Simulated assay, not measured.
Amino acid sequence: MNVTALSFVLIAACVAAEIFHEVAFKVAANRAGDSDHYVRDVARQPWMWFGMVLWAIQTGLWIVVLQSVPLVVAFPLMTLSYAGVPAASALFLHERMSKQQIIGAMLILGGVLCVGATAA
């Protein structure tokens, strides 16, 4: 199996969907607040449903990716979400990242670049 530019685009779309569905879930959870009916309140949040749509899209794209990309390549590239979710949380939700988290995210990025370079 040859990893094509389209495969990388699809993996990037999966990573983006993963990042933004996690942020959407967090926004929904924050907006639901603390109540005795927390699950119901979260289910009523539009952000929750937006996150679920992104999750479904990501799952569909991931299946397409797995048809043409070896898992040994695709899965490590998908771990960009481990760096992307905290970065998006800092950017959009104004959460703070510690120096150790920033260094960890940079190490993940470096590892993914190594894996990506072997697939090209």
Rank of each mutant, 00 (worst) to 15 (best):
G60N: 02
W47I: 00
A43C: 15
V42N: 01
E95D: 14
G84W: 10
F50G: 07
A74I: 11
M78E: 13
F50R: 10
A83V: 06
G33C: 02
S35L: 01
C114Y: 11
L91W: 15
A117P: 01
G51W: 06
V85H: 04
A117H: 01
A83C: 10
A74F: 12
G110I: 14
K99R: 09
M97W: 10
I102S: 05
G111M: 01
S98Q: 04
I108L: 10
L91E: 13
S35F: 03
P86M: 14
K99S: 05
P76W: 07
R44Y: 08
G84P: 12
G111T: 03
L113G: 00
R96V: 04
A29H: 12
F75S: 11
M48V: 00
H37W: 12
V53L: 12
P86K: 13
I108Y: 03
I63S: 10
L93R: 11
P76I: 01
W47K: 04
V73M: 12
G110H: 13
A105F: 10
T79Q: 14
Y82L: 12
L77R: 09
G110K: 11
G33P: 03
I103M: 11
A43N: 15
V115D: 03
R40M: 08
V85N: 04
V73C: 12
V85I: 15
L113S: 05
L66G: 01
L71Q: 15
D41S: 08
P46L: 01
S98Y: 00
T59K: 02
F92K: 03
A90S: 15
M97T: 07
L61E: 03
A56Q: 00
A56C: 00
L80Q: 02
L91D: 10
N30C: 00
A117K: 02
L66A: 07
Y82V: 07
Q100T: 15
F92Q: 02
I108P: 01
P70M: 11
L107D: 05
V39A: 13
V53Y: 06
A105E: 06
Y82G: 03
R40G: 03
Q100F: 09
A88V: 09
W62H: 08
Q58D: 00
L54I: 02
D34F: 06
W62A: 07
M48T: 05
I108V: 12
V73T: 13
C114K: 04
Q67N: 13
P70F: 14
A117E: 01
M52S: 13
S35P: 09
V115R: 01
L113T: 07
